[in-house]
């Protein structure tokens, strides 16, 4: 969503989606849902006769802010990735992920953390349920590095780094 909007809008602009939702694109690349409302003049405020009521937008509900870099990494991850020996498979579809290794499958919502943009490295967290202070509960996490557009490398995935390759559609 964020990337799509970035192509067509600049920061501070509003857009109406197909479902009627009005959003504003923010400077940091995130977006926020807003509700158009009729502007009512304050008491005592001069108003021209027959002047149309001005529309202004007021923030109603904020989406969880996603920084542009995280959004870009999430977008790059979309698809099916497989290790060369076929033992591991990672599927990213929308906001959900599924990791398969042999007879083990872990699925759920995913998050991207600890991005090192210079190295193209990040931590993929799948299915985490709770985070309290220094404790993170549930889920699984893997540290990956992008190698080009179609390779994901986990340097500590095994005795040798594990490389997942994007499956061609």
């Amino acid at each position: 969503m964020g990337l799509l909007l970035a192509v067509t809008l600049t920061a501070g602009q509003y857009a109406t989606l197909k479902d009627g939702t009005v959003i504003i694109l923010k400077d940091d690349g995130t977006w926020e849902r807003v509700t158009p409302q009729k502007s009512v003049p304050k008491v005592g405020q001069p108003q021209a006769d027959n002047a149309p009521a001005q529309e202004k937008v007021q923030t109603q509900q904020s989406e969880k802010a996603v920084d542009p870099l995280t959004a870009r990494y999430a977008q790059r991850l979309q698809g099916v990735w497989r290790s060369g020996d076929g033992k591991e498979r990672l599927e990213i579809s929308g906001k959900r992920a599924l990791f398969v290794s042999g007879r083990t499958r872990r699925g759920g919502p995913f998050e991207i953390e600890k991005i090192d943009a210079q190295k193209g490295a990040f931590t993929l967290v799948i299915g985490e349920t709770e985070r309290v202070g220094k404790f993170a509960f549930g889920g699984m996490r893997r540290r990956f590095v992008f190698e080009g557009a179609d390779k994901l490398v986990d340097p500590e995935g095994g005795l040798l780094p594990v490389t997942l390759q994007r499956q061609k559609r």
């Binding site: 959900r96 007879r103 499958r105 872990r106 699925g107 759920g108 919502p109 299915g127 549930g138």
Partner: peptide
């Protein structure tokens, strides 16, 4: 046959 339902996995 195996199916994953998020945190719930079946085979």
């Amino acid at each position: 046959v195996g199916k994953n339902f998020g945190t719930f996995d079946t085979m």
